[in-house]
């Protein structure tokens, strides 16, 4: 379960919001009902756009006056021009995309920065589930059975950092999150984070 920070924003979304400079152009991919965009618009004067796959999410977002299109990361990011945004946010959605690598590249093509968070498949609880029960892990943050999960491309924090290296992506900031979405700075981003962080949150850019 995620908890709410001050102002009604989920704790992990507040951490994302903290990474965004005021007055910037933001695309939130997988924006749900638009709560992060609404918060950014209200508190940081952000020019925000959203992409959301679920009809209910889009309808809720548009009905509160946000600019959100129905679509998804795999099909819609390619339609935006280079440098259209200052930040492209992908919160807990990377693992559900068909082509995470293309999505990451697209995010850093259309945005100066990318902010990505995802559940860490290297977490000890996931590892132990697989090790001791021999079955695909179903945990508090990974609630789906294998046959119904939308999460088709799980990775660990270490996997993700390796991919960033291969793609020439600079990790400007990384935060390990606990099961409540709160930051745990003491985990760092090395093996400790890979074992104990429920989620990883990264601010990315590409130099040159």
């Amino acid at each position: 379960m995620m908890t709410l920070a001050n102002g009604g924003l989920r704790v992990d979304l507040k951490l994302i919001a903290d990474m965004v400079e005021p007055g910037s152009r933001v695309l939130d991919v997988g924006c749900g009902d638009g709560s992060l965009l609404a918060w950014l618009g209200k508190h940081k004067n952000v020019d925000g756009r959203g992409v959301e796959i679920s009809m209910a999410g889009v309808a809720a977002a548009v009905a509160q006056g946000l600019s959100v299109i129905q679509g998804d990361a795999d099909t819609d990011l390619s339609t935006y021009p280079v440098g259209a945004f200052d930040y492209v946010i992908l919160s807990q959605t990377l693992q559900a995309t068909y082509e995470p690598k293309t999505v990451l590249n697209d995010m850093l093509r259309i945005g100066r920065h990318a902010i990505v968070s995802f559940p860490n498949f290297g977490h000890w609880r996931v590892r132990s589930k697989l090790l001791f029960t021999g079955r695909m892990p179903v945990t508090g943050s990974l609630t789906y059975q294998w046959y119904e999960t939308p999460n088709i491309h799980f990775c660990t924090i270490r996997d993700f950092l390796v991919l960033c290296g291969e793609l020439g992506i600079t990790v400007e900031k990384s935060i390990a999150l606990d099961r409540y979405g709160g930051a745990v700075p003491s985990f760092g981003t090395g093996w400790l984070a890979n074992l104990f962080a429920e989620q990883g949150l990264f601010l990315l850019s590409r130099r040159g």
């Binding site: 756009r49 889009v58 299109i69 129905q70 679509g71 819609d76 339609t79 935006y80 259209a84």
Partner: peptide
């Protein structure tokens, strides 16, 4: 919508 995205227009889209 995709044409509008291509010029970074401000667009909402609901099916």
């Amino acid at each position: 919508v995709h044409a509008l995205n291509a010029v970074a227009a401000n667009v909402s889209f609901v099916e």
